[in-house]
Amino acid sequence: MWEEYSIGLLGVLLCGVIAFVALAIEKDDLHRLLLIDLVEIPSLGIVALLATDLAEALILPGLVVGIAELLALSQIYLVKEGLKEQPEGRLHIEVIEYADAPLILSLFLVVYGIILSGFTGGGVAGLGVVFYFMSRGYKEDLSLLEAAAGISWAIWIVSFFVFMFLPQYWLLAVFGAGGGILLKVIAKMSLVGTMWGRSHE
């Protein structure tokens, strides 16, 4: 009864065994952190073997959980090892720093992203914001972005409850979820793009 599913599972489980054995042997903390990322991949493989549209919808949360925990863990690693060195200064290019071109380009990206809406739009618009921050240097004013991230999260939750309890207003919920995820992805991308750079100066 060796169907395709079992053959695939055999391969994925073998990969998992290799990754876990490596993790068990490794002693260095940084290498453990890197190996953890490797170990995550077989778990996504097992989910992918489901081979339905559901699998795709389950991989996304799985992937996000891995990335999120890796983000928190790497920050804990920096604190625990006492690594505080900030990256060196950026290149100073007059055209990027003083001309209007970066502003126009990022404005275009943000507007296009808002038209696209949803996850893709969030990615495009977030890229625009990141580009602007990178070109203009960053001033510590992240509170607005953080507030936007929080509000978008709330919008999303509200649209979820509309979907669940007031299904007749589903269109509103779709727009809410689309707008919420747009804001969320923009905020997340621009935070990630700026937070780890130079700051506190």
Binding site: G16, I36, V39, E40, S43, V47, L49, L58
Partner: peptide, 12 residues
């Protein structure tokens, strides 16, 4: 983080 691997694997 390693615990999520058997968790998601089991569910799948």
């Amino acid at each position: 983080l390693a615990g999520t691997v058997p968790l998601f694997g089991g569910a799948a």
